[in-house]
Design a protein around this nucleic acid. Structure first.
Lengths: 141, 141
DNA sequence: TAGTAAAATTATAAATAATATTATTATTAA
DNA sequence: TTAATAATAATATTATTTATAATTTTACTA
């Protein structure tokens, strides 16, 4: 998976640097939704010399290539990121602990969407986030 | 409508200042999705003395009270705002011109959502945004 | 209607987030 | 191995949002 992304970057003429590898690797390891700063801190455990600006540059590059998604979580002031593993998916965000998980499948009906949007609008995509409380936070209440 | 919001504010012990009125009024007039700065500039046409920080403070206050929604649009780095007119709704965002409109109704099936989220997660809400191209941008292409 | 307590505004400053610039270094392909 | 070029680091800057303290306004009460 890592190597697929590397290959994609090479095909586009991007160079593969240790920092760039580290960004991808850390994103894959964390699996879910770090901010640029959190990601940077994680990378620094193994690679203390990386700069936050480098992390931003790489995240933007990866986002432009469609390898990384920027997600907006409510209540968070900063962007968070995740690896885009090719397929369209949505998130389940806990309002208690702030953790997020991916849904296994997309629960919306495309035809219903098009109906609601009207015939004049060409839909090319959608985003859906579910908010609520996870089991742990429910029992804590 | 304006007066409903004013009343709600009064009930909560908030005071009604001209600046606060102006924020609500301008939000209602613009109808759709200004950033804090855009809103501030609009207000300044009638009321040049208002500070951007005052706009932020009022938007946050109104958001805390549920009178205003913060929306995250893709590609925008800043938050945008709209009056929450009580009812749950979604947006249709044009990737060409950036304009957004509200959907008339919610096209998602709550039961489907709960099924996808699993029985352990308590859903309290969701957000949905549709992306695509409006008629004008489609003909321009 | 004048006085007063509480809250909002202003002005100033600062925190946070993200991007730009430029010299240097490292990667890739020949 | 080396030249071309892309990426990094360091520094600075811009943009967005929030905090603090002094002053002014609002809304209530006598």
């Amino acid at each position: 998976m890592m190597e697929d992304i590397i290959k994609k970057l090479k095909d586009k003429g991007c160079k593969i640097t240790p920092q760039r590898r580290a960004v991808i690797q850390s994103l894959a390891k964390l699996a879910k939704f770090p901010t640029a700063l959190e990601l940077c801190n994680d990378i620094r455990q193994a690679n203390p010399e990386i700069g936050l600006d480098t992390v931003y540059r790489n995240l933007n590059l990866l986002a432009d290539m469609g390898v990384v998604n920027q997600i907006n979580l409510p209540g968070k002031d900063t962007k968070v990121f995740e690896l885009a593993l090719g397929k369209h998916h949505h998130h389940l965000v806990c309002l208690g602990c702030g953790k997020a998980n991916c849904l296994d499948y997309c629960p919306v009906d495309e035809q219903e969407l098009q109906k609601a949007a009207g015939s004049k609008f060409e839909i090319v995509g959608h985003s859906l986030e579910l908010y609520g409380y996870c089991q742990k936070c429910r029992t804590a209440k």
